[in-house]
Amino acid sequence: MPVIELNLSDEVYLRWRDFMGSQQADRLVEAGLLGDWVALGFMNKINDYLKQGGPPGVETEDERRQRMEAEARRKLTKPQKRVLPMFDENETITLPEICRVLGIPLDQGRTLVQDWVAQDFLSNAPRSRDDAPTFVLSRSWQERNLAANRPSLHAPRRLHFAAKSKPGPNEG
Rank of each mutant, 00 (worst) to 15 (best):
S165H: 14
Q66V: 10
R27Y: 05
P151S: 02
R100S: 11
A132T: 03
A163F: 10
P126A: 08
F42I: 11
L50Q: 11
R82G: 04
C99A: 08
A31M: 09
Q119P: 01
L40F: 06
K75A: 14
M43V: 12
L84W: 02
G103A: 00
P105F: 03
V136D: 08
Q24M: 09
W37L: 07
L50V: 13
P2D: 08
S9T: 15
T134Q: 04
P133T: 03
R110S: 14
V3D: 13
E89A: 08
L153A: 15
N149V: 06
M1P: 14
Q108H: 11
R127L: 11
G21N: 08
R67V: 07
D107P: 09
V38I: 14
V113D: 02
D18N: 09
N90T: 08
T77E: 06
R82Q: 13
N149D: 04
M1Y: 05
G35A: 08
K166P: 07
A72R: 12
E61L: 14
P167F: 04
V3W: 10
A163C: 08
K164I: 10
G41R: 01
P2G: 03
N7H: 12
D26T: 12
L102N: 02
S138L: 03
G109C: 01
L76M: 08
Q114F: 07
T111K: 15
Q108T: 14
E11W: 06
A132I: 01
H160L: 11
E171R: 09
Q108I: 12
A25D: 02
W37K: 09
R64L: 15
E30R: 15
I46L: 14
M1G: 15
A162P: 01
D130V: 06
R15Y: 06
